[in-house]
Design a protein around this nucleic acid. Structure first.
Lengths: 199, 199
DNA sequence: ATATTTTCTGACCGATCGGTAAGGAGTGAT
DNA sequence: ATCACTCCTTACCGATCGGTCAGAAAATAT
């Protein structure tokens, strides 16, 4: 799944120039998935976009699915690290709001990443576990609740789903309308999250 | 886009037996898109599932995309009619909540439809306009607000996006975990919608 | 300069894709 | 009997898919 394994590299070694090429391939793959959708991606298309040929791609990755998987993991990792940093910097009280805001922020800027995630989540071969996807958010909600002296959320799973889905929707909208004010949307979402604390 | 136009039928005529076959093909197409994803659907697969051959499918529909589009429209129409009936039966006050609840209800039962919608929304050739998609919901929110004597929602667009995205997320979760209690989730979402009235 | 290893290309493979051409099976009208 | 029409099949088309293979080009080492 995460191994490259063919010609040039394995998890252990992987020379630095190989990492460069792989990163380039992954970048172009993210672009293509974002533009043409998961179905429209082909090895030839990736190779052409990267300025190389198809076998060159397969030299660095064992198969097409390995390329796409790697691209998806790359995008997810960037998102997680960005949001994680934002949450860590925020106070415990506005934890969930900070989570939502930073997530919307990051995905609003990196539009290719957003589309890639949306595509991957809708695809049969990729990650489907939305519960696992939003689990960190559920934990944040609980932490913030206890910080405010409230009882634990009786259904943090649903709360996480609602907030996560809302983020999805807002970011998707931003993709279609670049003028859409995600800052205001994030504030409104944060207000709604706050409202659930007092219920 | 919505014309069948080849061999057997046009919008005007369309014999009854043709409608039967077309409905059968659409049904199997919905199943396949739900199971294998948008990318995994092929004319041969549809034909095999329907017990006929590939050209037979192309006799009733002019192209593959016409088949998939028709299947998508069928699913959307069923959803709209179901939710519309539920909203019409509900009082003006709990309009938005009834909308959300009936939507979750319908999609929880018709899982193939849910997956089809999710796949189609994530596909490049299908409908992407989430704003148009949730516009009826935004109007419902406004109607309910005025029924309660509140000022219009300053950002009904964002509200609709949040609620719509939450519905997406909950329904997707239900797809993966059939034991998930969508009734409780719908109630919780309704409470969150209510919170938007007082903010 | 020579040898070795890494990186990549051109040519090709079988499979499958969406779509077409031609015609047979069945039905009803004349 | 035969013509006309609907509905469907077998056979096939060019294009593209993911992936393989032998070997050239480029870099590195000696």
């Amino acid at each position: 799944m995460s191994e490259t394994s063919t010609g040039g590299s394995d998890g252990e070694s992987a020379t630095f120039i190989q990492r460069l090429r792989q990163a380039q391939i992954i970048e172009k793959t993210v672009e293509l998935v974002a533009e043409k959708g998961y179905a429209g991606v082909s090895l030839a298309g990736i190779a052409e976009r990267a300025g190389i040929t198809k076998p060159a791609v397969l030299y660095h990755f064992p198969s097409k699915s390995a390329v796409v998987d790697a691209a998806y993991e790359h995008v997810l990792q960037e998102l997680v690290s960005h949001v994680g940093a934002a949450v860590e910097a925020a106070s415990a009280e506005d934890g969930p709001a900070a989570y939502a805001i930073s997530m919307i922020e990051h995905l609003s800027v990196n539009r290719h990443h957003t589309r890639m995630i949306i595509e991957a989540l809708g695809n049969s071969d990729a990650e489907r576990d939305s519960a696992a996807r939003w689990r960190p958010l559920a934990q944040l909600v609980q932490t913030a609740r206890s910080a405010r002296g409230l009882a634990p959320d009786p259904d943090s799973r649903t709360t996480a789903l609602i907030v996560g889905g809302a983020i999805d929707s807002i970011v998707t909208e931003k993709l279609q309308d670049p003028d859409y004010d995600t800052g205001a949307a994030a504030a409104r979402l944060a207000a709604l999250i706050d409202a659930t604390y007092t219920s």
